[in-house]
């Protein structure tokens, strides 16, 4: 029993550490990308891996907190609902159990939608303005409300870009795989194709991550450009009023 407890504890620690590391890594990557985009737009720095990485180092803690705490709050909110639904399932009230589970899913969906919306602008507020994550989160939501139409427009453009790129990549990969399968069915050629298939799998993996990186960079850059336009317009408005 103790041994299994130790193994469970070991597994738990490994999972927690994995989550923490992935959050830090995402924070650094996003911070670098946003910081690098702003440096490029302002012609401030020479843009290379080292300068961009330095920008990421400044903001990775704040961004990691921004990714972690709102999701944690959303998860904690759903705990009473999950417990209630378990109680209903145990006491054979299946209908009530299903209702509570559906409610939990709905709450989680709404919470994650709000988090995703807030994060669009909050990421930039943390990375560029060095704002604490809580303040950035609420201000991000406020920015979404005041710039609803432009945010939605760019959101749709980015979604479409992702979909089109994904579909095109799938079509290219699919046609390559189909050609190989057709040739592979011929007995003599079949075995000779094995090294080619291995190379193709490696190429697909590398190209797949490169395409994903390109799409992500495009999305983050367009959001950053819009953020810059919106904040500059806001500043100009304030200066005129003064």
């Amino acid at each position: 029993m103790t041994v299994w407890l130790i193994l469970g504890l070991g597994l738990l620690i490994a999972i927690v550490m994995g989550v923490i590391i992935s959050l830090l890594l995402r924070g650094w990557a996003v911070g670098s990308l946003i910081g690098g985009t702003f440096d490029a737009l302002d012609d401030r720095n020479e843009i290379n891996f080292a300068t961009v990485a330095m920008r990421g180092r400044r903001s990775f803690k704040g961004l990691a907190k921004l990714y972690f705490f709102p999701s944690l709050v959303a998860a904690l909110v759903t705990v009473p609902f999950i417990l209630t639904s378990i109680y209903f399932f145990i006491s054979n009230s299946t209908v009530l159990g299903i209702i509570f589970i559906s409610l939990t899913m709905l709450i989680l969906m709404i919470a994650h939608l709000v988090i995703a919306i807030a994060e669009i602008w909050a990421e930039r507020l943390v990375a560029i303005e060095n704002m604490p994550w809580q303040q950035a989160f609420w201000q991000g939501l406020q920015m979404f409300k005041t710039n609803f139409v432009r945010t939605m427009q760019l959101g749709i453009v980015n979604c479409l870009t992702g979909c089109v790129t994904g579909c095109l990549s799938l079509a290219v990969i699919g046609s390559l795989v189909a050609t190989l399968v057709i040739f592979g069915l011929i007995p003599i050629i079949g075995w000779a194709l094995l090294p080619l298939i291995t190379l193709l799998i490696i190429a697909i993996l590398v190209l797949g991550s490169l395409v994903t990186a390109l799409v992500l960079t495009f999305k983050y850059t367009t959001w950053s450009i819009l953020y810059r336009e919106l904040t500059m317009a806001g500043k100009e408005k304030m200066e005129k009023n003064d």
């Binding site: 041994v3 299994w4 193994l7 550490m17």
Partner: peptide
């Protein structure tokens, strides 16, 4: 088995 399971718990956290 017990000893190996403890060792496995350690191995799981080897990166850490």
């Amino acid at each position: 088995t017990s000893s190996l399971l403890i060792l496995a718990a350690l191995m799981l956290n080897e990166p850490l």
